[in-house]
Design a binder for these strands. Structure first.
Length: 840
DNA sequence: GAGGAAGCCATTTTT
DNA sequence: TGGCTTCCTC
C-alpha cells in the first residue's frame, strides 16, 4: 500500500501530455514527435553543454561544473524541464543542495518558472531530506517519531557524561578529538561494535570505542540523535527495512545532487541506494572545489563516479560567466598545481579586467586599515557602481574577522559577519529552545538538564545526581521522576523547587495544548514564564551591554518564530492546492496546531546555520572561505594570505592537505567577479602570539603580469624567515635563525625592515619561521623552553614517566615535542606540557 | 547552593 | 588573547 500513490503509471496524466501552462503563461508542446529542442523557450540562453545536461535522459549523469559555469541555472532548469516537458510529478523529484539557503533559492527559482506546484519537489540538504524520511519511519529503528536532534553543545555534554562513566579523563583524550572521531566513524557508517573491533590494540581508540558505545546508548535512551545520525540511521533504516527503501526508490523518479564533490561516504551510500531503481541520477560538482574533507567529504566520490555508476555520461561545463579573464587566469594558475583532479579548463568570453591587487601590510592592524580604506574608496566612487553587498572579505579562520571589525566600524562601513556562533547557538536562545524541547518532548533529558536550574531555582548538582540515580533505578526519564517527586524520600529536601519547575513546564504544556495563541506569542510566554527574561533584566544594572544584547536576541527569536509560523502556514496552504500531493503533508491539516509548529520550528533550529539567514541589508560580508562556497561578489578581499595561516600550519604536514588548501584558495579567488584584492602581513598577532610570516604560496604562484603590488613584494623580502632541520645540527640552525630574528626585531624598531637585503641561508628548509616576543613558560616553573632542549634529551611526565625526545617541530614560537615513553609515543606542546627535563 | 576570582588552556574549516 | 573551568568563600 506504500506504493499506491507512486505506482509506475502516474508520471503522465491523461489529457495533459501535450500542453502544460507555466505560471508565466507560456505553453509549449511536449509530445514526443514534435519536440524541438532548438526552440524551446525553457532552454533559451543556455549554451550547448548546459542544454545537453538539462535534457539528458537514460543514464546517470555527472556534470563537472567549473566555478561560475552556471550550474545552479542548469539544475533549476532541469527540474522545470522535467515537470513541464516530461510531465514528471514534482513530488517524485528529490533535489539535494548543500545549504538550506540554496534549497530555498532553488525552490523559488523553480516556482517562478513553473508555479506553485514546485513546492511539491523535495528540495533540501541531505540532512533535512533524510530527516523527513526518518520521522516517517522512526519506530522501525527504535525511535519515537518525535525524536530530538542534538546540537554540538548537547553532544559535548553527553560525551562528557559518557567519558565520566567510562572513567576516561579528557586530559589524555581531548573531547574535541573524540567528538571528531565519532563523527567521522558515523560518516563512514561505522557503528560502535565495528569501531571497537577496529580499535584492536590501539589504546586510545579502545577508549573512544567505549565512549562511542556509551554515547550512542545515551542518545537512544533519550530518544535523540546527533547530526551524523540523521544520515547513518537513514542508511540503517533502509538496510533493515528493504520495503521502505523500495518505496523511496520507486518514488524518486529523479534524483539531483548538487556539490557532489563534498559528499561523504554515508551520503554516497544514500545516493546509490535511492537511485538504484530508476537510475535517473543527475549530479553536479567540481572536484576542484572540494573543501570539506575534514568533515568526512570524500573526493573519490566524484573522481570515481564513472566507475561507480556504470554507463553514466559526463558533461563538462567549462565556460565561466562570472569572473574576468585576469581572475580566471589566477585561479587556473593556482589549481593547476594539484595532482588529484579531473582536468578541466575554465575559459571566459569576458574582458581582461583589472589586475589583482596585492598588498603586504606590516601587521594585522595595518592590513585591516588597508582593506577598510579600499572599501571606503570603492564605495565612494559612483562610477564603480557597487555597494556594500557586492563586497566580500574572505579569510581562512574566523579569528581574522576581529581585526577588521573596528577598522570597518570606524569608517562607518556596514558589515555583517557570517559564521562564528550561530544565532540559535547563543546561550540565551538555546535556553529558550530547550524549554520548547522539553515541553514538546518530556523524555528529552538533555533539554531538561540544561534548564532545570536555568534560571537558578535552587536545584544544584546534588539534586541532579539524585534525580539521575532515581531515573536509572526506575528506568525512566528525568521529567517523569520530577513529576512524581513525592515518591522519592531522598529528594524531599528539594521537592518544593522541583515541584515548581514541574508546574511551570506543565502549565506551558497546557497553553500549548489549548492552542489558542500564535506561536510567536507562545515563545514570548515561554521566555517570561520561565524567568529567563527577568533574569537578564536583573543583569541590566551589572552588565548592561551583555544583558541588553541578550534581551535583544530573545526578542529576535520571538520575531523569528512569528515569521516562521507565517511562512509555514503559507507553504502548507500552497501545497494543499494540490490534493494529490498531500500525502507528503502527513497529518498536517490547516490550521496547524501549536504543537506541530513547535516541532517544525525545533527542526529548523537544529538544521539551520547562520548562512541560511536571508540577507536584507546592504552590508559588506565577512566570512570564511568555506562559508563563501557557492557565493559570488563583485569585489573580493582575500586577507591573511600568509604561510602558516593559509595554507594552515597543520596542512603543511601533508601533501593531501596542501591540495585541499589549494582548492580552498581556488574557491576564494573564483568568488570574485571583477576585482580581487589579496593581502598578507609581515607579522601577525594571533592567539596572543606574534608570528612572522612569509607570503602565502598561493599568492606568489599567481603570474606576475596579473598582479599589481602595493606595500611590498610577494616575492623575496623574507630574509628573516627561515626554518630548521630536525635531525643533527638542528640546534645550530635554530640558534642562527633565532639570532637573525633578534636582529629582525632591532631592525624592525629602527625601521630598516622592508628593504631587500640579507644573504640567503643555505641548507635550511624553506618554511615559515615563527617567533615570540618571549617564552610564556618562563617563571612559571612548568613546561619546557624549546631552546634549551635537544633530540635525545630525557624528560619526565607525571603520568607517563620518563621518556626520550624523538623529534622537535617548531611551531608558533613554541615547539611540538614527540616523546617516546617506553614505546608509547606522545606529542606535547613544549611550553604547555607538564614535562620536566631529566639529567641522565 | 550561588557567585566571584583566579588559573587554565587552546586555538581550521561546519551541514 | 580570551573563553571556560575550577576553586574558594559566603
Amino acid at each position: 500500500m506504500l506504493f499506491a500513490k507512486f505506482g509506475q503509471s502516474d508520471s503522465v496524466r491523461p489529457g495533459q501530455e501535450t500542453s502544460v501552462v507555466s505560471s508565466t503563461g507560456e505553453s509549449f508542446s511536449t509530445s514526443a514527435n514534435d519536440y524541438d529542442v532548438e526552440h524551446d523557450p525553457l532552454l533559451k540562453g543556455l549554451n550547448p553543454e548546459q542544454k545537453k545536461a538539462v535534457i539528458h535522459e537514460g543514464s546517470p549523469l555527472l556534470i563537472l561544473a567549473g566555478a561560475g559555469s552556471g550550474k545552479t541555472r542548469v539544475i533549476t532548469k532541469r527540474i522545470s524541464w522535467l515537470v513541464q516537458r516530461k510531465n514528471v510529478n514534482p513530488g517524485r523529484i528529490l533535489a539535494i543542495t548543500f545549504t538550506n539557503k540554496a534549497a530555498q533559492e532553488m525552490k523559488d527559482r523553480v516556482a517562478n518558472r513553473i508555479g506553485l506546484i514546485a513546492r511539491a519537489v523535495w528540495v533540501g540538504t541531505f540532512h533535512s531530506m533524510m530527516l523527513r524520511i526518518l520521522r516517517q519511519h522512526a519506530e522501525y529503528i527504535g525511535y519515537e517519531r518525535s525524536f530530538s536532534i542534538l546540537d554540538t553543545d548537547d553532544q559535548r555534554r553527553v560525551l562528557k557524561e559518557s567519558m565520566k562513566k567510562e572513567g576516561i579523563s579528557d586530559k589524555t583524550t581531548p573531547l574535541r578529538h573524540i567528538h571528531q572521531e565519532i563523527s567521522k566513524a558515523k560518516n563512514k557508517l561505522i557503528y560502535p561494535e565495528e569501531y571497537a573491533q577496529m580499535a584492536d590494540k590501539d589504546l586510545q581508540k579502545k577508549q573512544i570505542a567505549a565512549i562511542y558505545k556509551n554515547y550512542q546508548q545515551q542518545l537512544e535512551q533519550n530518544n535523540s540523535m546527533d547530526f551524523d545520525d540523521i544520515l547513518a540511521l537513514t542508511v540503517f533504516l533502509f538496510e533493515k527495512e528493504p520495503e521502505i527503501l523500495a518505496y523511496y526508490q520507486e518514488r524518486f523518479l529523479h534524483l539531483l545532487v548538487d556539490e557532489y564533490q563534498d559528499t561523504n561516504y554515508a551520503q554516497y551510500v544514500l545516493v546509490k541506494m535511492l537511485a538504484a531503481k530508476h537510475k535517473n541520477l543527475f549530479v553536479v560538482g567540481d572536484d576542484d572545489q572540494s573543501i570539506y574533507s575534514f568533515r568526512g567529504a570524500n573526493l573519490m566520490n566524484i573522481l570515481d563516479f564513472e566507475k561507480d555508476f556504470q554507463g553514466c555520461r559526463v558533461i563538462r561545463l567549462e565556460q565561466n560567466y562570472r569572473s574576468t579573464r585576469t581572475i580566471l587566469a589566477a585561479a587556473n594558475s593556482i589549481i593547476s598545481q594539484n595532482k588529484q583532479r579531473n582536468h578541466k579548463n575554465l575559459w571566459t568570453q569576458g574582458t581582461e579586467g583589472k589586475k589583482i591587487n596585492f598588498y603586504r601590510a606590516l601587521d594585522q592592524g595595518e592590513e585591516a586599515l588597508y582593506v577598510a580604506n579600499q572599501i571606503k574608496h570603492l564605495l565612494s566612487k559612483s562610477e564603480n557602481n557597487i555597494s556594500g553587498k557586492d563586497i566580500g572579505i574572505l579569510y581562512r579562520v574566523n579569528a581574522l574577522a576581529r581585526n577588521l571589525e573596528s577598522a570597518l566600524r570606524d569608517r562607518g562601513i556596514v558589515y555583517r559577519i557570517y559564521g562564528g556562533t550561530r544565532f540559535y547557538d547563543r546561550k540565551e536562545i538555546r535556553d529558550i529552545v530547550s524549554y520548547l524541547r522539553l515541553i514538546s518532548q518530556p523524555t528529552d533529558d538533555i533539554a531538561l538538564l540544561r534548564i532545570i536550574n536555568t534560571p537558578r531555582r535552587g536545584i544544584g548538582a546534588t539534586t541532579i545526581e539524585l534525580l539521575n540515580a532515581a531515573a536509572v533505578r526506575e528506568q525512566t526519564y528525568l521529567f517523569d521522576i520530577c513529576s512524581r517527586i513525592e515518591e522519592f524520600s531522598e529528594l524531599s529536601f528539594a521537592a518544593n523547587n522541583i515541584l515548581s519547575f514541574v508546574r511551570l513546564i506543565n502549565d506551558l504544556r497546557q497553553i500549548m495544548d489549548k492552542n489558542e495563541i500564535e506561536f510567536g506569542y507562545y515563545v514570548k510566554q515561554v521566555t517570561s514564564a520561565s524567568g529567563l527574561r527577568a533574569e537578564q533584566e536583573a543583569q541590566l544594572g551589572k552588565l548592561p551591554l551583555e544583558a541588553t544584547t541578550r534581551i535583544q536576541n530573545m526578542d529576535e527569536l520571538i520575531s523569528d518564530a512569528m515569521e516562521f509560523e507565517g511562512r509555514l502556514q503559507e507553504e502548507i496552504e500552497e501545497l494543499s492546492q494540490f490534493p494529490d500531493l498531500m500525502e507528503d503533508l502527513d497529518n498536517l491539516t490547516l490550521p496547524l496546531t501549536l504543537e506541530q509548529i513547535t516541532e517544525a520550528y525545533l527542526e529548523r533550529v537544529a538544521l539551520y546555520s547562520d548562512l541560511d539567514q536571508e540577507d536584507q541589508e546592504d552590508a559588506v560580508s565577512l566570512m570564511t572561505i568555506h562559508s563563501a562556497k557557492g557565493l559570488e561578489f563583485d569585489t573580493v578581499f582575500l586577507i591573511g594570505a600568509n604561510e602558516g595561516l593559509f595554507p594552515s600550519e597543520q596542512a603543511l604536514q601533508s601533501a593531501g592537505e596542501i591540495e585541499e588548501e589549494r582548492r580552498l584558495a581556488y574557491v576564494a579567488v573564483t568568488r570574485a567577479k571583477k576585482r580581487l584584492y589579496i593581502t598578507a602581513t609581515r607579522r601577525r598577532l594571533l592567539y596572543g602570539q606574534t608570528m612572522y610570516q612569509k607570503v602565502s604560496r598561493f599568492a606568489t604562484e599567481i603570474p606576475d603580469d596579473l598582479v599589481e603590488e602595493e606595500g611590498g613584494s610577494r616575492h623575496g623580502d623574507d630574509e628573516y624567515s627561515s626554518g630548521f632541520q630536525s635531525d643533527f645540527g638542528w640546534r645550530r640552525s635554530f640558534n642562527s635563525a633565532y639570532e637573525r630574528d633578534d636582529r629582525f626585531q632591532r631592525d624592525f624598531a629602527a625601521g630598516v625592515v622592508g628593504s631587500r637585503a640579507g644573504t640567503k641561508e643555505s641548507g635550511l628548509k624553506d618554511k615559515a619561521f615563527v617567533a615570540t616576543t618571549g617564552f610564556t613558560t618562563q617563571g612559571k616553573g612548568r613546561g619546557l623552553n624549546y631552546k634549551e632542549i635537544a633530540v635525545g634529551d630525557k624528560v619526565s611526565h607525571e603520568q607517563h614517566g620518563t621518556g626520550e625526545i624523538m623529534k622537535i617541530t617548531p611551531f608558533s614560537g613554541d615547539a611540538i615535542l614527540e616523546i617516546n615513553f617506553h614505546g608509547l609515543v606522545k606529542r606535547f606542546k613544549a611550553s604547555m606540557s607538564l614535562l620536566k627535563r631529566v639529567e641522565d
